[in-house]
Simulated assay, not measured.
Amino acid sequence: MAPWTSADIPDQTGRTAVITGANTGLGYETARALAAKGAHVVLAVRNLDKGKAAADLIVRRYPGADVSVQELDLTSLTSIRAAADELRARHDRIDLLINNAGVMMTPKQTTQDGFELQFGTNHLGHFALTGLLLDRVLAAPGSRVVTISSNGHRFGSIRFDDLQSERSYDRTRAYGQSKLANLLFTYELQNRLAATDTIAVAAHPGSSATELGRNLPKVVEWGFGLTVQRSEMGALPQLRAATDPTVRGGQYYGPGGLLQMRGYPKLVSSNRRSHDVAAQKRLWAVSEELTGVTYPLG
């Protein structure tokens, strides 16, 4: 069977895709590929100048591409609510919500709301945004919520007794927790979406050359360097999760090469902890409590 590439993306004309962190790296490549196939793409970014520059670059490459920019800071619930209000005002439906933005192995920091930065940005920010936009996603037939995880979920655990790493902080462990949370969220969201026409899917890029790795320890950076692939390749799993007609809810896509670090996208598996149903439900309840966002689902 031939490998899946961006050439396999179906026509996206008439569809709206909101992509977080889309001014650079995997988000930019995802936005570029979807715009090339006719989608109206919204770059949801923290830095408006960088977002506008990325949008201009896409339009220069694909004259007539339909691209807009939305300010969004995932470290601020106030910004998330404001962005959701603006997106809801402009769009009656959202066909694709791609939760792509993230931070990786940062020094100990907190979000504007006091959450540990990696857990707050990678999981809680996207949990809140998805809940606030879900009615618009549900309004689009065949819509999808795609959330980006990582191989890092394999060394993560959800420390319910210290979610914000207040007692102790290890940046690798905190990153793993946030990426495991992305999968627990996806699987529980799919469970809640089962009676709808919307699906939740997860993806991961393997080892990709993006700005996300700027905080990697040198030894980890060296190891990644042995397997790193271009960001265009790293974006393929999330593009497949977002557009391949054969994708089903609750699936997980990643590179098909050695240790899922590089290669063309295929259906992959996540670890046992990500399928812990009790943890999925507990994390959901905690996330609602922390963000103040509840979902319009039974």
Results as ranks from 00 to 15, higher is better:
residue 11 D to H: 09
residue 12 Q to F: 02
residue 13 T to G: 07
residue 14 G to N: 05
residue 15 R to I: 02
residue 17 A to D: 02
residue 17 A to K: 11
residue 18 V to N: 06
residue 19 I to G: 02
residue 19 I to W: 07
residue 21 G to D: 06
residue 23 N to G: 06
residue 24 T to Y: 11
residue 27 G to H: 09
residue 28 Y to T: 07
residue 28 Y to V: 00
residue 28 Y to M: 02
residue 29 E to N: 08
residue 30 T to F: 02
residue 30 T to N: 09
residue 32 R to A: 12
residue 33 A to P: 00
residue 37 K to T: 04
residue 40 H to N: 06
residue 42 V to M: 00
residue 44 A to L: 03
residue 45 V to S: 03
residue 49 D to H: 13
residue 50 K to I: 08
residue 52 K to I: 10
residue 54 A to H: 02
residue 55 A to E: 00
residue 56 D to F: 14
residue 59 V to A: 13
residue 62 Y to N: 07
residue 63 P to V: 05
residue 65 A to C: 08
residue 67 V to E: 02
residue 71 E to V: 04
residue 74 L to T: 10
residue 75 T to P: 00
residue 79 S to K: 10
residue 81 R to E: 10
residue 82 A to Q: 12
residue 83 A to E: 14
residue 85 D to H: 12
residue 85 D to S: 15
residue 88 R to Y: 04
residue 88 R to N: 15
residue 89 A to W: 08
residue 89 A to Y: 03
residue 92 D to M: 10
residue 96 L to I: 12
residue 98 I to G: 01
residue 104 M to I: 05
residue 104 M to R: 01
residue 108 K to W: 13
residue 109 Q to R: 12
residue 109 Q to C: 08
residue 111 T to S: 05
residue 111 T to M: 09
residue 113 D to Y: 03
residue 116 E to H: 05
residue 120 G to L: 02
residue 120 G to E: 04
residue 121 T to G: 13
residue 126 H to Y: 10
residue 128 A to K: 00
residue 130 T to A: 10
residue 131 G to C: 01
residue 138 L to M: 14
residue 139 A to D: 04
residue 143 S to F: 10
residue 152 G to D: 14
residue 154 R to K: 15
residue 154 R to W: 13
residue 159 R to A: 07
residue 159 R to Q: 11
residue 161 D to C: 01
residue 161 D to P: 03
residue 164 Q to C: 00
residue 164 Q to R: 00
residue 165 S to I: 01
residue 166 E to Q: 12
residue 167 R to Q: 11
residue 169 Y to H: 04
residue 170 D to T: 14
residue 172 T to A: 13
residue 173 R to T: 11
residue 176 G to Q: 06
residue 178 S to R: 04
residue 178 S to C: 02
residue 179 K to N: 13
residue 180 L to Q: 05
residue 181 A to W: 06
residue 182 N to F: 10
residue 186 T to V: 15
residue 188 E to L: 07
residue 193 L to H: 01
residue 196 T to C: 05
residue 196 T to A: 11
residue 197 D to P: 14
residue 198 T to S: 03
residue 198 T to P: 09
residue 200 A to K: 01
residue 206 G to N: 08
residue 206 G to W: 08
residue 207 S to M: 10
residue 208 S to T: 13
residue 212 L to T: 08
residue 212 L to S: 07
residue 214 R to H: 14
residue 223 G to C: 12
residue 224 F to R: 07
residue 225 G to P: 07
residue 225 G to K: 05
residue 226 L to Y: 12
residue 226 L to H: 14
residue 227 T to I: 10
residue 234 G to T: 05
residue 239 L to V: 12
residue 240 R to I: 02
residue 242 A to H: 02
residue 242 A to L: 01
residue 242 A to Q: 07
residue 243 T to C: 04
residue 244 D to G: 13
residue 245 P to Q: 11
residue 247 V to L: 09
residue 248 R to D: 11
residue 249 G to K: 15
residue 254 G to S: 08
residue 255 P to W: 11
residue 257 G to Q: 12
residue 260 Q to A: 15
residue 263 G to R: 13
residue 265 P to F: 07
residue 267 L to S: 06
residue 267 L to N: 02
residue 268 V to S: 11
residue 270 S to Y: 06
residue 272 R to A: 09
residue 275 H to C: 05
residue 277 V to C: 06
residue 278 A to S: 03
residue 280 Q to D: 03
residue 281 K to G: 15
residue 281 K to Q: 15
residue 282 R to Q: 11
residue 285 A to L: 09
residue 287 S to H: 03
residue 290 L to W: 08
residue 290 L to Y: 00
residue 291 T to P: 00
residue 291 T to M: 00
residue 296 P to F: 03
residue 298 G to S: 14
